[in-house]
Simulated assay, not measured.
Amino acid sequence: MTCAGSTFTSTVDQIFTALMNILIITAVISLFIAALFLVALIWSIKDGQFDDAYAPPNRILFDEKNNQHNK
């Protein structure tokens, strides 16, 4: 009976070790993907992807209307 108990414990330990390895690999992969998204975000901000191209032309138009009312 002792042999069967140690075999069961050994099998459980192997399964636990395999699951922990999978968890560690998954965590490392997810951190790598998150770092890639962070780099892409920083790159797009520096490249001007989020600059407002619509408001400045409209602001010029509204400024002219305000200047005409002030005169």
Rank of each mutant, 00 (worst) to 15 (best):
T11W: 03
A55N: 10
N70P: 02
F62V: 15
M1Y: 04
A53W: 05
A53D: 10
N58P: 01
Q68G: 00
I45D: 01
T7K: 08
R59Q: 03
D63I: 14
S30L: 04
L36R: 05
M1Q: 10
P56M: 08
T11E: 02
D52A: 00
I45T: 06
K65R: 14
P56V: 09
A18H: 12
K65M: 15
I33P: 03
I29E: 01
P56C: 06
N67G: 13
V12W: 08
N58T: 06
H69P: 01
A18R: 11
I29F: 03
L41V: 10
M20A: 07
I25C: 06
A34E: 02
I42C: 02
L41S: 12
L23Q: 10
K71C: 00
D13T: 15
S30Q: 04
F62R: 14
W43I: 10
T26A: 09
I29D: 04
S30I: 03
A34Y: 02
T11R: 09
F37S: 08
L41A: 13
V39K: 12
V12G: 00
T7V: 08
M1V: 11
F8G: 08
Q68M: 14
L31N: 05
S10L: 06
T17N: 13
Y54P: 01
I60W: 11
L31K: 01
A53P: 06
R59H: 03
D52T: 07
T17D: 10
S44P: 03
L38N: 02
T17K: 14
N70C: 07
D52H: 08
D52W: 01
A40F: 04
T2L: 10
D52V: 06
D47T: 11
I24Y: 06
E64R: 15
M20D: 02
S10F: 08
A55I: 09
V28I: 14
C3D: 11
L61W: 07
Q68H: 13
T7I: 08
D52E: 08
T9R: 04
A34R: 05
A34D: 05
E64Q: 13
A27I: 00
C3N: 08
F32R: 00
T9C: 07
T9K: 02
D47F: 02
F50R: 06
I25G: 07
